[in-house]
């Protein structure tokens, strides 16, 4: 561009002709053009005001959820110590009946407590846990009896690792505070989550899935569709299960 400076002094022939053309061109048909500038811009203004579509944002509301499900209350309220139960609408201590009734055999058909469906794996005998002679107590393997509040020790006899994990906080649920020294710290016991007669956690209805902004239709559940290659890792999951479980 120092070059172009010199170019001013010795402008080539061609450049002269061109610059002349450039200057002349300013005088040509621009009369009409300048006249049109204002109206054109006014038309644009009108188009913007009247014809421009408003930018829309699609709505993607969080589906309504039942707030009562969002609770920190334990899943179950276990029997107290001493345990009480409702018979014909009246609250009764267990032994009010059981002190009169002769203890039956575990294999017998139940006449009372028919709501109890025992599904505790190998543990299929009432007297494994309930004391035969004092129904307000539980019985340990060594024959000693503990109150219902100590049910943890009963469970711990078989579920040693779970018990160990529970004492360390790796299993179970801790509420109130993460700090052991905090008075609000409380650890739920086994039976506050698990039904001792059927300890498997019952399946739950899941709450609504994500529906985020402009998400579109969700991805297909079967990810094997996304790649044609057969994945040996997924041999036992996608292929078999998805087809059966998918139509829930």
């Amino acid at each position: 561009m120092a070059k172009s400076f010199e170019g001013v002094a010795h402008e080539p022939e061609d450049g002269h002709r061109r610059s002349a053309r450039g200057a002349r061109s300013a005088g040509g048909g621009d009369g009409v053009a300048t006249l049109l500038v204002g109206p054109v811009l006014l038309v644009v203004a009108a188009v913007i005001v009247f014809a421009m579509p408003r930018a829309e944002v699609p709505s993607s509301p969080t589906p309504l959820v039942r707030t009562e499900l969002l609770t920190d209350a334990p899943l179950r309220t276990p029997l107290g110590d001493p345990p009480r139960t409702f018979i014909a609408g009246f609250e009764r201590r267990c032994n009010e009946c059981h002190s009169i009734i002769e203890p039956g055999d575990s294999r017998d058909e139940l006449l009372q407590h028919q709501d109890i469906k025992l599904a505790h794996g190998l543990n299929d005998d009432c007297y494994n846990c309930h004391a035969r002679d004092d129904r307000e107590k539980l019985v340990l393997r060594d024959g000693s009896m503990v109150g219902y509040a100590q049910s943890v020790h009963l469970c711990a006899q078989c579920h040693g690792r779970m018990y160990r994990d529970w004492t360390r906080g790796a299993h179970g649920k801790t509420l109130g505070s993460w700090d052991r020294s905090n008075p609000a710290f409380r650890r739920l016991t086994c039976v506050q989550c698990h039904d001792p007669h059927a300890p498997m956690m019952p399946p739950l209805e899941p709450m609504p899935g994500p529906k985020t902004l402009r998400m579109g239709e969700p991805a297909p559940a079967d990810h094997s569709k996304l790649s044609k290659r057969r994945n040996p890792l997924l041999m036992w999951s996608i292929d078999g299960a998805e087809k059966e479980g998918g139509d829930h």
């Binding site: 899941p206 994500p210 078999g240 299960a241 829930h248």
Partner: peptide, 13 residues
């Protein structure tokens, strides 16, 4: 799968 919809969870598979 982020978008599973089932009547009950967990699914055993």
């Amino acid at each position: 799968n982020h978008h599973y919809e089932r009547a009950r969870v967990p699914d055993e598979n």
